[in-house]
Design a binder for these strands. Structure first.
Length: 585
RNA sequence: GCGCCCGUAGCUCAGCUGGAUAGAGUAACCGGCUUCGAACCGGUUGGUCGGGAGUUCGAAUCUCUCCGGGCGCGCCA
């Protein structure tokens, strides 16, 4: 359709009616109102200024120059200069056959063919179970990945494991202290330690496996450690306190045993995160270890490269990256005064590593609270001589939890949070996934736990799944009734589908590939969710208005053909969102 | 103070990248099962698209400026 108009515009250029530099790639859209035909084109209005004539006149010229074709039955010039196209109905109905022929492939594209895209998402620190905030990134990232795959891209899903750094040491220390409690020691647990019950569970396992091997006396552990911050002691320094405890753990346990405790904490939590995500339907191609970067000197190599290019300078004993050269607000430290690399330094090396792996496009999905971090990473990428055109950071706003009309606070430290696992147990995987992606990602998401838990059948996901189950039910009824459905015969009698409900359902089926394309390229899963709701609505309306298991064999075949195609599209769409298409519910 | 996101029906949100009379869900009210699943369908009520100015054939959409809300501004991760 858009080709037709493009050709018309080209011949107008040849005739000199419009300037040669006019864009000929036109936008054709499905009309919202049936009175406006099936497709509409606004090219005449866009080009009117360039062509120095009024839009309606130009539209007439375009229509006159449309190449001959078999499926446009009528064109109309309407409003300020829209060209409305009316498409031959039998041509429209062919989409039913197309859907059924292509099956699961219907709606896929080749626009990403030959391009490798990496999607990195969740990447939560392995210091505790995933909470509901991570769930949104998980659902969003996995659906974006699936959409890109449907668009033809070769997709690599990756989780960046922050298995190095101070937070992990705090985790190790927390586990060890809980372990000491189990050994009978008693002391005040540090304010800055991880206090969740899962730490106690890990400590318990550690003790079962190693008995008292890591036991040290509390008085030795706290000997010389700076005072903690407590209600009774507001002068205390919780940061210095925990850091000193980490050093104590290392010195009292020795390197090997410290690593054993550290590893126990890390692996237990990481395994839990893996299982959790797998049960949520989120799979990864790679779990990339931050530690591996320093093991392979990649951080040093990245910094050296920046140094060579002249973007590193020293000040106050620290090494700074000149990110302001690339639009960042201020320069950033990469190596601290104490010689330790910053998290940012790892991230520079990590992104350099991504480019070296040969991806054509990188997508990072972050929580919106990290948005201030974007400019410095882009700066680093540019400084390393890479283009940021194919580097996208998609920000996901927080899911704000409401419980009993009150905001529920989330904090991994305090242990008072709702985990993703708890949420899945309450509302189910399908509802949770759908709920997470049904809103634009940059929109704050109000997640009312009470509503989700008590009235989960109000969730739109059931509405869509019900449409699928209903179609399956019709086909079950068909076998029971002794009637038959002959797809081959149906292909020839599609002209019997002449009601308004049928036409609107057919148009919806035809729209699906465009929806996938737009949702994939814009990284907007909610468009697909919205579409599926509309499609289900078209079907339910149709279902209530007409019957399928009828005596008229021709009409029966045609109608069953239509709802069979509808079922296929529902399946394809639900598969991309990663939720079930149940045959009965 | 600076930066990013957001402000559309009572509530929760779409609005296809500037198009035609701004749409769904939910809530409220009315109606529809002897018939393939009522977890459904139809209808009614509900809007100064936060305010103002600008850009043009045309603005919820783009620009500026106020107002209101969220988040971020470490030699933390």
């Amino acid at each position: 359709m858009s080709e037709l108009v493009s050709l018309a515009l080209q011949s107008l250029i040849e005739q000199g009616h419009i300037p040669a530099e006019s864009p000929t790639d036109v936008l054709i859209e499905h009309t919202r109102d049936k009175a406006h035909g099936d497709f509409a084109c606004n090219a005449a209005m866009r080009l009117a200024k360039l062509a120095k004539c009024n839009p309606r006149e130009l539209a007439t010229r375009i229509v006159e120059n449309l190449p001959a074709n078999s499926f446009v039955t009528k064109t109309e010039i309407a409003g300020p200069g829209f060209i409305n196209f009316f498409v031959d109905e039998s041509a429209q109905r062919q989409i039913i056959n197309t859907v059924l022929e292509q099956g699961r492939a219907y709606g896929t594209h080749q626009i990403g063919a030959g391009k490798k895209v990496q999607v990195e998402f969740v990447s939560a620190n392995p210091t505790g179970p995933l909470h509901v905030g991570h769930g949104r990134g998980a659902a969003y990232g996995s659906v974006v990945a699936s959409l890109l795959k449907a668009a033809g891209f070769e997709v690599h899903r990756e989780y960046y494991v922050n298995d190095a750094g101070r937070q992990m040491n705090i985790l190790a220390a927390s586990v060890w202290l809980r372990y000491l409690e189990l050994c009978g020691e008693s002391f005040a647990f540090p304010a800055n330690g991880y206090k969740g019950d899962y730490i106690r569970d890990i400590a318990q396992e550690l003790r079962q496996a190693h008995d008292n091997r890591f036991h040290r006396k509390a008085e030795d552990v706290f000997q010389g450690v700076p005072e903690d911050l407590t209600d009774a002691n507001p002068q205390g320094d919780k940061e210095a306190h925990i850091d000193a405890l980490i050093e104590k753990a290392k010195s009292l346990l020795g390197a090997a045993d410290y690593r054993a405790v550290f590893g126990k904490g890390l692996n237990t939590i990481l395994d839990d995160i893996r299982d959790d995500l797998a049960e949520f339907g989120v799979e990864y191609d790679e779990w990339f270890s931050e530690q591996s970067l320093s093991d392979n000197d990649q951080i040093q190599i990245a910094i050296d490269e920046l140094k060579e290019k002249g973007f590193i300078y020293e000040e106050g004993g620290a090494l700074w990256f000149r990110s302001t050269d690339f639009g960042d607000e201020k320069d950033r430290v990469v190596v601290r005064e104490n010689g330790q690399m910053t998290y940012f330094a790892s991230d520079i090396a990590y992104h350099l590593n991504k480019y070296q792996r040969g991806f054509d496009q990188l997508i990072d999905i972050w929580g919106a609270d990290h948005h201030g971090y974007v400019p410095r990473v882009r700066a680093a990428i540019e400084a390393l001589g890479k283009s940021t055109d194919d580097f996208h950071v998609l920000l996901v706003q927080f899911a704000i939890l409401y419980r009993g009309g009150q905001k529920a606070q989330m904090s991994t430290r305090s242990g008072e949070f709702v985990t993703l696992r708890e949420l899945r147990d309450e509302v189910g995987r399908d509802a949770a996934r759908f709920f997470y992606i049904m809103r634009k990602s940059e929109q704050h998401l109000d997640f009312d736990l009470d509503l989700a838990k008590s009235q989960s059948s109000d969730n739109p996901v059931y509405y869509i799944q019900y449409a699928h189950a209903r179609i399956c039910s019709v086909f079950r009824g068909l076998t029971e009734s002794g009637q038959h459905y002959h797809p081959k015969q149906a292909e020839g009698v599609l002209h019997r589908l002449d009601t308004e409900h049928e036409q609107s359902l057919i148009k919806s089926l035809a729209r699906y590939p465009e929806v996938i394309k737009a949702a994939a390229l814009n990284h907007e899963p909610h468009q697909l969710a919205q579409y599926l709701r509309d499609l289900a609505n078209d079907f339910h309306t149709y279902y209530n208005a007409h019957r399928f298991l009828i005596e008229d064999e021709e009409l029966r075949n045609a109608r069953l053909h239509l709802i069979s195609a509808t079922r296929q599209v529902l399946q394809n769409g639900l598969a991309i969102i990663g939720i079930a298409a149940p045959e009965a519910m």
